[in-house]
Simulated scan of single mutants.
Amino acid sequence: MKTDNRILLQTISSYYQVELSFFNHLHDLGLLEIEIMEQSPYIHENQMHNLERMIRLHNELNVNPEGIDVVFNLLQKIDHLQKELIATNNRLRLFEN
């Protein structure tokens, strides 16, 4: 199987000095998609940005995986509300002109 655009979790684990169980916990919470290829766990490279944020929350602020889930859900809601506000402001400008 090809592993293009996928990163071995063991590599990430050693680089960031985080246990593999942390990634499994994030996967169980639905925050991380893990693909098993050739009997090894991989993640797609497009998940790295969010994963790095999760690792920083965990290491620097001592946030557990459940807390990370809460933080990311709140960030998604904020992002959705900001997009909604921009769309509403754009519609309002149409009526003002």
Rank of each mutant, 00 (worst) to 15 (best):
residue 29 L to R: 04
residue 2 K to L: 09
residue 90 N to S: 15
residue 65 P to T: 03
residue 5 N to E: 11
residue 59 N to C: 07
residue 97 N to L: 14
residue 77 K to P: 07
residue 12 I to G: 00
residue 60 E to K: 14
residue 50 N to L: 08
residue 46 N to P: 08
residue 84 E to K: 15
residue 73 N to A: 13
residue 87 A to D: 12
residue 10 Q to N: 09
residue 23 F to I: 00
residue 97 N to H: 14
residue 82 Q to A: 08
residue 90 N to F: 13
residue 8 L to T: 01
residue 8 L to I: 00
residue 68 I to Q: 01
residue 87 A to H: 11
residue 43 I to E: 02
residue 41 P to G: 03
residue 41 P to Q: 03
residue 68 I to L: 07
residue 96 E to T: 13
residue 93 R to I: 04
residue 27 H to I: 02
residue 86 I to S: 13
residue 12 I to D: 02
residue 62 N to R: 09
residue 55 I to T: 02
residue 39 Q to G: 05
residue 12 I to Q: 02
residue 30 G to W: 14
residue 85 L to M: 13
residue 91 R to D: 09
residue 73 N to C: 12
residue 64 N to S: 09
residue 71 V to A: 04
residue 91 R to L: 11
residue 13 S to D: 06
residue 2 K to M: 05
residue 81 L to N: 13
residue 3 T to D: 00
residue 71 V to E: 01
residue 23 F to H: 02
residue 96 E to H: 14
residue 59 N to I: 07
residue 74 L to W: 13
residue 13 S to L: 03
residue 38 E to P: 00
residue 60 E to M: 06
residue 55 I to Y: 03
residue 46 N to R: 15
residue 2 K to E: 12
residue 91 R to P: 01
residue 68 I to G: 00
residue 32 L to Q: 04
residue 9 L to W: 02
residue 46 N to L: 11
residue 78 I to Y: 12
residue 64 N to F: 07
residue 26 L to I: 00
residue 62 N to G: 04
residue 49 H to R: 14
residue 62 N to E: 10
residue 94 L to G: 13
residue 57 L to F: 13
residue 16 Y to F: 13
residue 25 H to G: 00
residue 48 M to Q: 09
residue 77 K to R: 15
residue 51 L to R: 08
residue 34 I to S: 05
residue 60 E to V: 07
residue 81 L to S: 11
residue 34 I to A: 03
residue 15 Y to K: 13
residue 30 G to I: 03
residue 27 H to E: 06
residue 63 V to A: 09
residue 23 F to C: 00
residue 41 P to I: 03
residue 26 L to A: 00
residue 69 D to K: 08
residue 81 L to F: 15
residue 38 E to Y: 07
residue 18 V to K: 01
residue 63 V to E: 02
residue 85 L to K: 15
residue 93 R to E: 12
residue 65 P to H: 05
residue 39 Q to C: 05
residue 2 K to A: 09
residue 81 L to K: 14
residue 7 I to V: 06
residue 93 R to A: 09
residue 96 E to C: 10
residue 26 L to F: 07
residue 44 H to W: 13
residue 81 L to P: 07
residue 12 I to E: 01
residue 62 N to W: 06
residue 13 S to I: 02
residue 45 E to F: 09
residue 14 S to M: 08
residue 1 M to R: 06
residue 48 M to Y: 14
residue 36 I to H: 11
residue 66 E to V: 11
residue 3 T to G: 03
residue 96 E to I: 13
residue 19 E to F: 09
residue 10 Q to C: 01
residue 80 H to A: 13
residue 93 R to S: 10
residue 44 H to D: 07
residue 30 G to Y: 11
residue 67 G to F: 04
residue 77 K to C: 06
residue 48 M to R: 11
residue 11 T to S: 06
residue 84 E to D: 13
residue 4 D to I: 06
residue 58 H to D: 03
residue 46 N to W: 13
residue 48 M to W: 06
residue 17 Q to I: 05
residue 10 Q to E: 04
residue 33 E to C: 11
residue 55 I to V: 08
residue 96 E to F: 10
residue 76 Q to W: 14
residue 38 E to M: 07
residue 60 E to H: 09
residue 64 N to Q: 08
residue 36 I to S: 10
residue 25 H to A: 02
residue 14 S to C: 04
residue 54 M to T: 01
residue 66 E to L: 09
residue 61 L to D: 04
residue 41 P to C: 06
residue 35 E to V: 10
residue 72 F to C: 08
residue 81 L to Q: 15
residue 80 H to W: 15
residue 29 L to K: 05
residue 8 L to F: 05
residue 5 N to G: 03
residue 39 Q to P: 02
residue 43 I to V: 12
